[in-house]
Nucleic acid binder design. Structure first.
Lengths: 208, 208
DNA sequence: GTCTATATTATGATAGAC
DNA sequence: GTCTATCATAATATAGAC
């Protein structure tokens, strides 16, 4: 059996095939965001990526494999950005401040960074069970990262003791995740959205 | 041309046809929530409503007409609940308190009240343009209701003057709208979610 | 009102030329 | 690597019996 170029996952290669693969992924992310999981047709992806539908099968074994790749990237890019931003913070930064940082970064990724994140968020609930299972493990560690921040902040006395931090955390992430549904430069400046999101987060602050 | 039973919109009639229509709507809402707009098949709806797919055409002219009815109901039920709750408040209730009330009601509707609201929220972004246009006019007045509350609260000095109330409002509604994606009784008690949502809202309070 | 065909169309996927 | 057929399947919608 000869080598197949399929299933390569490194993105650093600048060869023609890799470029086409990237175009394909970006096209798929855009269509996925716009039409949803079931509405995403290979024909539409191909048209946007400027090739013919059967060419997709040179890069992916199936429609599902392509979609899974898009969703996984969307998810990982959010996670990577936030983790990176948190890592920049000096030791001893208060947990509430770390949460503010995570809120800002997550929001900026979701609003700025291509369709990948939006595609992942918007379609997670409609993916077939088999795909969700694969993706959920990545998702889980991201959720735990947030959860730890909130729990530490609360046991530290930075966050009100009487709020359910799990609910608060999920509400906040939800607010951020939903923002692509309504945001455009006409509605509000991105910095104003960030400021508003942080203001809401500050509702959790413990006050004397 | 004989009368057709189609396009009747009153729900008060208990006749057999109306009962079937309700079963159909509920089935469609459930499938729509689970599979998304494009993934919603008449066959799946029919199976869940315990009839054969072609029978749907006795009640609706097309798949789209049925889906539009579901989405419109989902939207109107949220709006009606919140408006009703706000109307119960005594005159002179501070605007911040009205906002808390709207937050609580909207959240409870979204988490408690069947699949209609979830179906509307989850699929709004993926509906075909023609359908969205119809539905957006209802949606608009609901958004304006919220916007007025926030603007009054701010000009009243109840809400911080330095936050963009439009962004804040959309973030909050987003947090609420997203909650069905993660909420279950196992994650948190519904009252705790309400309390957390109100805590976040209180982040907007102007403090001396 | 609800059913059993069935017409029509669109889509994912394959075969095989270039 | 990418293309032009082409196959197989599945879904909306209609016709017409009951």
């Amino acid at each position: 059996m000869a080598d197949s170029p399929r299933k390569r996952t490194d993105t650093t290669d600048g060869s023609k095939g890799q470029q086409t693969r990237e175009r394909l992924l970006e096209a798929a992310a855009a269509i996925l965001t716009e039409k949803g999981y079931s509405g995403t047709r290979l024909g539409d992806i191909a048209k946007r990526a400027e090739l013919q539908a059967p060419a997709i099968y040179y890069y992916y074994d199936s429609r599902e494999a392509l979609i899974e790749d898009v969703v996984r990237r969307g998810q990982q890019s959010a996670q990577a950005h936030v983790e990176n931003a948190l890592a920049q913070l000096p030791d001893g930064t208060p947990f509430l401040e770390r949460i503010r940082c995570a809120v800002e970064e997550h929001l900026r990724v979701v609003l700025n960074l291509s369709d990948f994140t939006t595609a992942a968020i918007r379609n997670m609930g409609q993916l077939p069970e088999a795909m969700r299972k694969q993706i959920r493990s990545d998702h889980k560690s991201y959720g735990e990262l947030w959860q730890r921040l909130f729990e530490e902040a609360q046991s530290n006395g930075e966050i009100r003791g009487d709020v359910d931090v799990t609910a608060a955390r999920l509400l906040i992430i939800g607010a951020l995740n939903w923002s692509p549904e309504w945001w455009s430069t006409r509605v509000a400046d991105i910095d104003d959205v960030v400021a508003a999101a942080i203001a809401l987060t500050d509702g959790l602050i413990a006050r004397p």
